[in-house]
Design a protein around this nucleic acid. Structure first.
Length: 275
DNA sequence: CCAAGGCCTGAATG
DNA sequence: ACATTCAGGCCTT
């Protein structure tokens, strides 16, 4: 089954990707990736990466998550949608910045962050700014970070980077842990709650049972009324955990994929209403 | 344990 | 124009 490169990049998982001609270019940590419509990846470092998670057996996964008509419809509509496997540190910082914000603003903030703090490299005739590493962000001044428009999240971003720099947050170790241990570890990072933690786990730590519950997903789940507990506008940490249990029980071990398909369909339908 | 309010910021809404 | 609200949460009372 072919990968929908553009659709996957434009599904709220990554923010530092742009298209030039027929090729998508994206910042992924200390690497720059170039992807044509075939899905074949070239990279600045020349190292291989399974960014589109070709290792996943989509036949098994799609079968597993197709528990109802709504998911089946989304799967049929976006057969090439994939969860991306991105750089964990970049993912962490990106989603700390994402909280209480919107995609355009996130793109703007992250764009400034890499442009101002990231190392410039040339790749395929273009100049890109790599994502600043933990050292660089941890050592940045408050003004440097806040100047990127992140507002009150500036302290969170810097402190998160310091945790990584000082080894108080060992991302590679967390990657080996199961969902619950990983969740607990990531929640210790300032500015990271359940939703951001789920995003980091699903998009960069190989936890396909992570199911980010944001306002959009809660809205979608309202349509399942009866199966999932009624929703209030905001949910507590405890409610979040209980809902996650129910969702994994319902969608199975690849629940994160179900989330991504449902989310994509809802977002596109919403956009359509505005065109 | 839960509810309510504050928070940077820019775009949308009145 | 200008004020208010809201956005893909989190933290503190």
């Amino acid at each position: 089954m072919n990968i929908d490169v553009a659709g996957s990049i434009n599904s709220g998982q990554v923010f530092l990707w742009d298209r030039y001609g027929n090729t998508w270019y994206g910042i992924n940590g200390q690497n720059v990736l170039a992807v044509g419509s075939s899905g074949r990846i070239r990279s600045y470092l020349g190292t291989g990466t399974d960014f589109f998670r070709r290792r996943d057996d989509m036949g098994v996964i799609l079968e597993s998550i197709s528990r109802d008509g709504r998911v089946k419809k989304a799967v049929k509509k976006y057969p090439g949608l994939r969860i991306l496997d991105q750089d964990p540190f970049q993912c962490l910082i990106s989603f700390i910045i994402s909280s209480n914000s919107n995609i355009q603003k996130i793109r703007s903030c992250l764009g400034k962050l890499v442009q101002r703090l990231g190392e410039k490299v040339e790749f395929e005739g273009r100049v890109f700014s790599l994502f600043p590493d933990a050292d660089r962000i941890a050592g940045a001044t408050a003004g440097e970070i806040q100047g990127c428009g992140v507002g009150y999240r500036a302290g969170f971003v810097r402190d998160a980077a310091r945790m990584v720099r000082d080894g108080r947050l060992d991302i590679e170790e967390i990657k080996k842990a199961d969902y619950y241990d990983a969740m607990e570890a990531i929640l210790s990072v300032p500015g990271v709650g359940s939703k951001v933690a789920d995003c980091v786990m699903l998009f960069s730590l190989d936890k396909l049972d992570a199911f980010p519950l944001d306002r959009w997903m809660l809205r979608i789940l309202e349509k399942y009324r009866g199966r999932f507990k009624p929703d209030t506008k905001t949910i507590t940490k405890r409610q979040y955990g209980m809902l996650h249990e129910e969702l994994v029980g319902y969608f199975g071990p690849y629940a994160g994929y179900a989330q991504q398909f449902l989310f994509k369909m809802e977002r596109d339908d919403y956009q359509k209403g505005w065109l």
